[in-house]
């Protein structure tokens, strides 16, 4: 099924707010927990207590420093990254077995683990580092957009959202349908100028990132400063007298 659908009914994905993400890694571990117990093989950890632990994770939080021009203070941005469920997903088309596919109904890109030969080519084809081979099961793992949560009738309605979104303490992650221009995610992207990662790769990622709002903008602003009521204590006490009169 490595042909991509020409169009999907819905375009489900995430909006990640880089202005709000505090880099707590909660989404990383909630994802690990949910996906270990659910879809496919558990996300394993090799050398778990040893010198070089390597586990599979479907979502990882990077951090970057940015040095603005003109010597303004450097900034630090926490940057969670999982599969962007690309419209033109190269990871799907390269897959020789059809294990990788993009769902027609909602655009979610999935790996059917029982078909996966673990060749790793899809991970090579993904620009974003969104696919990881499980160190134990040797099949390709990737973000499922919690396909086993978002429609799950065994979960209360309010919980039918990805594990990472549900857990994010800062509310920096939003889940919704990008095909619907009025959805929460489309609105956020429109209002805050949501960005696409590596557009030059031509993958047309569905997930979007909200850029950090301008920071440290007022450091050198001189006014409006406070007007002193008096320059000295004595004058101040005089002012105080009048002020107390008015109370």
């Amino acid at each position: 099924m490595t042909e991509l659908p020409t169009q999907t009914d819905r375009k489900l994905g995430l909006v990640i707010d880089l202005d709000t993400c505090v880099g707590c890694h909660a989404c990383v571990i909630a994802c690990k927990g949910w996906n270990t117990e659910n879809y496919g093989a558990p996300l394993a950890d090799a050398d778990a207590y040893g010198a070089q632990p390597v586990g599979s994770f479907l979502n990882r939080v990077h951090s970057y420093e940015i040095q603005p021009p003109d010597n303004a203070p450097a900034q630090l941005i926490h940057f969670p990254k999982s599969c962007l469920h690309c419209e033109d997903a190269p990871c799907v088309t390269v897959c020789p077995t059809g294990a990788s596919y993009k769902r027609v109904e909602d655009g979610i890109v999935l790996v059917n683990e029982s078909d996966c030969i673990g060749c790793g080519l899809c991970a090579w084809a993904c620009p974003y580092g969104a696919r990881e081979m499980d160190p134990s099961e040797k099949v390709m793992k990737k973000c499922t957009l919690c396909v086993d949560r978002i429609y799950n009738e065994n979960l209360p309605e309010e919980d039918r959202e990805p594990a990472c979104v549900r857990t994010c303490p800062a509310g920096a992650r939003h889940f919704g349908d990008f095909a619907d221009p009025d959805s929460n995610v489309s609105t956020l992207v429109a209002e805050r100028g949501g960005i696409e990662l590596m557009p030059e790769q031509g993958t047309k990622p569905v997930n979007r990132y909200l850029p950090p709002r301008p920071k440290d903008v007022e450091i050198d602003v001189l006014g409006p400063l406070l007007t002193p009521v008096a320059q000295e204590p004595r004058g101040f006490l005089g002012w105080l007298d009048k002020a107390l009169e008015r109370l």
Binding site: C24, A26, I29, K32, G33, E37, R166, T167, P169
Partner: peptide, 22 residues
Amino acid sequence: AYIEGNRDHPVNKGVLCAKGSA
């Protein structure tokens, strides 16, 4: 099998940090 935040709880209102989920 899995640990998540309790939405009714006054402290975390459903969210959970990395440690909690681990």
